[in-house]
Design a protein around this nucleic acid. Sequence first.
DNA 1: CCTTAAACTCGAACCTGTTCAGATATTTGC
DNA 2: GCAAATATCTGAACAGGTTCGAGTTTAAGG
Lengths: 233, 233
Amino acid sequence: MLPERNSTKARRTRANIIESALSLFREQGFDQATMREVADRAGLAVGAAYYHFRTKDEILLALYESTIDDALERARFKSAKSADFADRVKDTLEFKLSLLKPFRDFLGPLAGHALIPGSALSPFSDESSEIRAREMQLFSSIIHGSSLKVASEFKQHLPRLLWLYQMSVIAFWLRDTSTGQSRTLRLISISLSLIMKLFAVTRVPVLRQANGLILSLLELTEPDNSEKQAACA
Amino acid sequence: MLPERNSTKARRTRANIIESALSLFREQGFDQATMREVADRAGLAVGAAYYHFRTKDEILLALYESTIDDALERARFKSAKSADFADRVKDTLEFKLSLLKPFRDFLGPLAGHALIPGSALSPFSDESSEIRAREMQLFSSIIHGSSLKVASEFKQHLPRLLWLYQMSVIAFWLRDTSTGQSRTLRLISISLSLIMKLFAVTRVPVLRQANGLILSLLELTEPDNSEKQAACA
DNA sequence: CCTTAAACTCGAACCTGTTCAGATATTTGC
DNA sequence: GCAAATATCTGAACAGGTTCGAGTTTAAGG
């Protein structure tokens, strides 16, 4: 891990670099902008940038984090308007997308890391666990504040599921070339209707036989229990 | 686009490069192996390698393609053993994963391109449409040779859906750290059971009301109808 | 054969992310 | 205020993917 970097100066320099990076990324895209340019615009040498950020990607991650950070609070407020689960999720997702919109053009390269197993930038990685936890927390509050009815055994998995759903929506949105990404908005509203129907179905007695399957699928995809066997040895 | 490169010599050189790359990637991993080494081992200068392949990643793609190519035929044969749809899909997926296994460690970088919108290496891109079409064709033959019963309006979407399912399985497999990726095998069998149940449900009269939703979701995610509006103008 | 254009190959040079051995600034202990 | 310790910064050097102008080989036509 990097040293503290918590002094006022370090924080200011970091902010300075992030700001320069943001404007450059906006102007030229993530790939085109070079670290030398970022450092130049911040009035620093490359080495200084690498003193505060391990990699170029990490600057992008910090950028994302600083944007999403206060956004989470606003999203929580925004979603509280209705008690209907689907409405709340819809509001939240649309709000998040509107926040991400300015970055859409250079978020693509970042998304590429999602599937690369070792990447620190993957939303599944340890490095981004903090921000992931914060996002899931938002979904938790959305669930608990709503009037959602779903088979009780699924409750504990819902935040992660919702987060996964959000990631899929974002992945679709990044590749959505329709004007204003209107297609994504339709995707959200249709898929949410379906999800609600699915939730309803899990409570129908005749169909509950499938719940066991769903549950084992959920447990199978849980990230942290891969060492359970190792611990027994 | 690159020129023809279809002469005997070009084909031989390409094969030569691919072979060198494969052995090097196996020995050192994709990232560690340098283009200079690949070229050296093939008895060429770097420039020659770049005459035949636009990028390092493209060599990996060619590698993947040459592996998957004859595999598709064998997979078709393999899946024909049973008439049960789920069994056929399961056999095919497991067979494909067994083929990909030797590449698993260095397939990550390739997967990374999947989500990057403009990437030529994305499995969604125009450039890889040929291999995608061939894979979907396999799924078509799996469907048509089986005793699958599903609401008729979904039939036309099944190959693409199955292909998407395959991609998800592979994405999971790439990040699956359980010994022998046993977890992925369980994922396949559980998710297939669920999918079969879902198929059954689409034919239950009371629940058919959801079919319209599903159908519009399927059409929304179709890749080629993004220009329909533009064509009207 | 010889000519010539196209296909192919070469390898030095380029570009850009990253590192590192030292400056320079800032803080801390006294 | 001062010296040691620590934090911050510098810019040259490195590494590896990629480009490119200049050769060399091959194929076709005469």
